[in-house]
Each structure stands twice: as structure tokens, then as C-alpha cells.
Amino acid sequence: MRLRGSNKWRFLGSQILVFVWSASAAFADAAPPFSPTNIFAPASTPAKAIFGLSLFVLAVTGVIFLVVFSLLLYSVVKFRKRKSDDGREPPQVYGSNQVELAWTIIPILIVVALFMATARVIASVQKAARPDNAIEVVAIGHQFWWEYRYPALGVVTANELHVPVSNDDHPAPTFIKLLSADTDHSFWVPRLAGKTDLIPNHPNSMWIDPHEPGIYLGQCAQYCGTQHAKMLLRVYVQQRAEFDGWIQQQRQPATVSNAVSQGQRIFETTACINCHTVAGTVANGHFGPDLTHLMSRDTIAAGAAMNTPENLQQWITNPDAIKPGSLMPAMQLSDQDLNALTAYLETLR
């Protein structure tokens, strides 16, 4: 019994150690402990600024907590009514101005300190200068998926944002303009920056400068309707050369191949083109994601499923199976047509 108890404590202790270790390891941009979306594992300047502030705030509130908690505990234990009580009322104390003054002034000082630390970080994030070589991205929130435009680079894509690595030698921050096509959304990739909302008629902006390549996850953080839960975010941070290559590839019009002309015909004669664009073809709908380079994406439907042929087929026949409530209707297609259509989509690299 005894042993088990102490084991448990040891386990808890080790858990705490892990937590502390991970918090410090976060400084070193190690793989995110616990979670790919841990806010204590920042990998970009704004997130780091927030991380610094949060440690300070946690420390201050932690100390307040310890002090007040101990006082409360002490008084509850010390001044409990004892068995040996004589039944008389304790001394009646009505108040004391000195004490009141003390516990008014000390909190005021703490609040001032907290405020100043906060104001500095607000300024450092919100007023950051924008270098000329910054990448400019427009992110448009749609009910349950993300549209990304790189106006200066002439690229339109969806759901998977690609940005270059930025470091002290080659700073290349990405500035994101946030718009909404319908309801409110919020862009939140915890390791890169705090969240900022996308609100119709109310353009916002934010910036990130990820220091390490990798895939950073997040998801929509403002309730936007039925499928708010599966409006996931993926940010691909790439080395500069890789990023430039990706841009090059995205600027190409869609590949057209005779082998799949059957599928293309189906695509262009069903409702698909009302909602989807495939650059270089007649499809230029804007209600759904741009499919020009569909196959260059790892996932479909804003991260709800991996981009595999089976998933694609299921998505087209019954989006609700993957993402109930998404705004893409189920397309009624014969198996043959479906196969041809998918074969066509498979060529959209």
C-alpha cells in the first residue's frame, strides 16, 4: 500500500518535472512537448513575446496565490472552533484602517507592474515595423475553410498556408491580412502567434516569423457555425528555396491531360464549377476552395481528412461523412463517373 502511494507521488513529481522541463525546453524550439498546439512552445517572435509575458504574469499571480492561499488556510485551521471551546464569543473586531490601506496599496502596485509589462508586449506585437521583404498573405475565412491569397506573388490556395522560415540573418516575416467572407472566424496557430479574428467588414492583420521549418497546427477559434470544430489550420514553414519552389509551382495553371478528359468533362458539366476554380479551365467558382493544385495539399476539407483517393471519393459523394454540416453538397454520381472525376482531380498537382 505504502509503496504504491509513494509511487504515485513519484509519478506526479516526474510529471511536474516533465512540465517544467518542457516549459524551459520550449525556449530552445524543441519539438513541442505535450501538444503541437502548446502555447508554451513558441516558435515565432510574437508568440515568444507573449510567452515571456505569460511567464511573468504566471509568476506574479502564482505568488499572490501562494500568499493568499496560505493565509486563508492558516486562518481556517488556526481559528477553527475547538472541542475545548468555552462558549464565549471571540473578541469583536470591527476593522482597521492601516490594514485596509496596506491591502489596497500593495495590489495597486502589483497592478501597475502587470500593466506596464503588458503594455510593452502589446506595443511590440501590434506596432512591429513591416520590412520590405515581408511576405504578404490575405487569409479569408469561409464557413469552414480558409482561402489564402498571395497578391504580390499571384498565388491562390486553400487551407494549407506556406510561409518561408525567418531568422536573424534573413528576416522574412509574413504579414497576414485577415478578412471574412461570411461569419466571424479566428486565426490561431498557438506556436506562431496569438489569435486574431476574421470579421466581415472589419479587416485585421497579424504577423508571424517562424524560426524553424515544420508544420504548425491550429484551428479556427471563433465560433462560426456548424463545423467550427473542423476548420483546422496548417501552416507549412519551409526553407526559402523550398518556399520559392512551391510558389513557382502554384503559379502554374492546372495541368491538362488527355488521359483524364472524361473526368474533366464531368467536373465541368456538374455543379462543381459553380463553386470551385481550376485555373486555366472554365471552372471559376469562388464559393469553395481553389482546386487548381489540389494534389499539392496533404489534407482536404480544411484538415478534416487526409488527401487520399478514397477520402476524395467519399468527400465528393458524401461530405457529411467527413464533415457533417459542411457547405459542399453531396454530389450524386455513378461509380464510373466518380472514378473518372477522381482520376481527373488526381492530376491537379
Binding site: 502555447i39 504574469v57 493568499v68 492561499f69 486563508l72 502587470l114 502589446i122 489569435k195 477559434a221
Partner: peptide
Amino acid sequence: CIAFLFQFLVAGLTGIMQGAAPFDWHLGNS
């Protein structure tokens, strides 16, 4: 009421964390 005192203390302090705006850029809506 005693439990209230302890718990309100914690709740107030998490409120202060959210009150630090940049921290709330993470905490908000989470």
C-alpha cells in the same frame, strides 16, 4: 463559503491572466 474563498481567488487570478491582453490572444476563446 470557505471553498468559495479559495476558488474565487484562483478564478480571479486566471481572470487577471486573461486581462493581460497578449496572454489573452492565446487564452481567449480557448
